[in-house]
């Protein structure tokens, strides 16, 4: 009997040791896979950012840039992807639009800022773009080409040589660029980005209603200035507002309060020319 117990105890310890090692290996594997996935995402985002900056000039105002980064990164602290560093830039354009490239490269036009009335509206627009990044909308719609060591390939392109982009990668970035500037995201992805934005705003303490208020203002600007390019790659604003309202009802959000932060934003806005 005693021998049998010893035998079982030995099996127990061996099984426990094997399973612990297996779980440990699995954790390391997941960590490595995540690191590779994020690295690819960052490199993809950088290449696409180059495309964005080939179409728009950056608005050169370091103080304004720091402010926008504080708002955007402040929201991003509560957006769940702590492995990313988000970079925000103001584009020198009177249009009302914003763009996001994978990995956290986010661009907002000067025209958008001029159409806003408070910091919560700025946070809302940036949160929407963070939503596109965090839900990997571009990468899901236009995945990276399945090449071996794609991250190493692109890294060497950008960092070491800076000249040769594989044909497949070139094609991918070109398609992503078409998505951003011509076709727009899938409608369901826009709605998902809006829902994510509301959740980030609530967690940070901004008034989530700012998203709807800003979108309603865009709608009225559209009516008065039909030539102005306003969110032309986004689905109709009224549809988005309706979808947001349905989501808010589902979330019983009526009692949730938040801040608009108007004074600080107006000071910032006066520094924009």
């Amino acid at each position: 009997m005693r021998t049998k117990q010893k035998y079982l105890a030995a099996i127990f310890f061996v099984a426990f040791a094997i399973l612990s090692c297996a779980v440990g290996d699995n954790v390391r594997k997941r960590e490595t896979e995540q690191h590779q996935r994020v690295t690819q995402e960052l490199l993809y985002g950088r290449l696409l950012s180059k495309e964005i900056l080939s179409r728009y000039k950056v608005y050169n105002n370091p103080e304004a840039s720091v402010y926008v980064n504080k708002v955007g990164r402040g929201v991003a602290l509560f957006a769940g992807r702590s492995e990313l560093t988000y970079y925000f830039a103001i584009l020198d354009s009177e249009t009302i639009n914003a763009f996001a490239a994978p990995g956290g490269y986010i661009f907002i036009t000067k025209g958008s800022i001029m159409a806003m009335e408070n910091e919560a509206e700025l946070a809302a627009m940036l949160a929407h773009e963070i939503g596109h990044v965090n839900n990997r909308h571009i990468m899901r719609q236009i995945p990276l080409p399945k090449e071996n060591n794609i991250a190493d390939t692109i890294a060497s392109i950008l960092v070491a040589q800076g000249t040769v982009v594989s044909a497949a990668m070139n094609e991918t970035v070109k398609k992503a660029s078409t998505l951003l500037f011509e076709d727009g995201y899938l409608i369901e992805d826009e709605y998902e980005a809006d829902q994510s934005a509301i959740s980030y705003l609530i967690e940070t303490g901004y008034d989530y209603r700012a998203l709807i208020q800003f979108m309603s203002r865009i709608e009225s600007i559209k009516k008065t200035d039909t030539k102005l390019q306003v969110y032309h790659t986004h689905p109709p604003t009224l549809d988005r507002i309706n979808m947001i309202n349905s989501f808010l009802k589902e979330q019983n959000s009526a009692s949730i309060t938040g801040k608009l932060v108007t004074e600080r934003f107006q000071n910032f806005k006066t520094s924009i020319h």
């Binding site: 954790v27 997941r30 960590e31 995540q34 690191h35 994020v38 690295t39 960052l42 490199l43 950088r46 957006a79 769940g80 702590s82 492995e83 990313l84 560093t85 965090n134 890294a155 950008l158 960092v159 994510s196 959740s199």
Partner: peptide, 16 residues
Amino acid sequence: QKAFTSTVKPKGKVSI
């Protein structure tokens, strides 16, 4: 919210 969870423990920023 599920979006604020991960099966991988956060270990700082990934940088290139």
